Simulated assay, not measured.
Amino acid sequence: MNANPPSVTNGNLLIAEPFLGDSNFERSVVLVCEHSNAGTFGLVMNQLTDIHLSDVIEEIHPDLPLFVGGPVQQNTLHFIHRRPDLIDNSIRILDGLYWSGDFEQIKDAVNVGTLTERDARFFIGYSGWDEGQLAEELSQKAWIVSRTDADFIFDTPVDAFWRGVLKRMGGQYKSIAHYPLDPRLN
């Protein structure tokens, strides 16, 4: 094993180690939207809520699911998408995957059905790390770093996301995907 922690870039996935011990991130997969020397901003891809976008934004009519993006500022709304052709001011995360953009255009596109859950995900809150904090967690092997693509993000079922990422990585990670939630039950 390499003694240096893996490097992180925009578009990477941070996969929680099976026994991370942090209930906010148990079996979570975080998409890194922005990473710099100042810190890291990400969104949890696999923590679905029981509320919908229309429950928090009155002007939205379709019932698109809401995810918990992380434990920070859960009174904020964030979104990723793969339709920059519909949404101005989108920030490219990686090829085919974008973060944020003009929210009025988002609302209009959702309401007329040109933007669906196949092309967008909405999150309350986010995951954030201050300068050096993520590097420290990586050196403690709290996270596994992986690459991804937009199709995997949007086409993988939420309940299979954590395992799916690990299986896709292959090798030792494929076996980690089968670790039980409670090792005493093994």
Rank of each mutant, 00 (worst) to 15 (best):
L31I: 07
G170L: 03
I51G: 11
L181H: 12
I93E: 05
W162T: 03
H61Y: 15
D63T: 14
A177T: 02
V30G: 02
L14K: 03
T148H: 11
N46K: 01
D119T: 13
T9D: 14
D50L: 07
L64Q: 07
N24W: 00
E136S: 10
V44K: 01
L138M: 09
L86W: 01
G164L: 05
R83L: 06
D155I: 09
L181V: 11
V29W: 00
D108L: 13
P157I: 07
A135S: 14
T116E: 12
H81N: 05
D63L: 15
D22T: 06
S100C: 01
V30N: 02
R147W: 03
D88A: 13
D149A: 03
E34Q: 15
F19S: 11
L86E: 01
F19Y: 15
G96I: 08
L53D: 04
S146I: 02
D159A: 08
N111G: 10
A16D: 08
I106Q: 06
H81E: 08
N111F: 09
T49V: 00
G164H: 07
N10A: 14
R83N: 09
P71W: 00
H35P: 07
Q47T: 00
H52T: 13
P18Y: 05
D149S: 08
N10E: 13
K107R: 06
E34G: 11
L20H: 05
A38H: 13
L14F: 06
T76L: 08
V158T: 15
Q105T: 02
H35D: 11
D155P: 09
T116C: 12
G101D: 03
N37I: 10
N12D: 14
S146D: 12
G70L: 01
E58D: 15
L86T: 01
E34N: 15
A109R: 06
V32H: 07
V145T: 09
N4S: 13
D55T: 08
V112Q: 13
V30Y: 03
V30L: 06
A120R: 09
P71K: 04
F103G: 06
A160E: 15
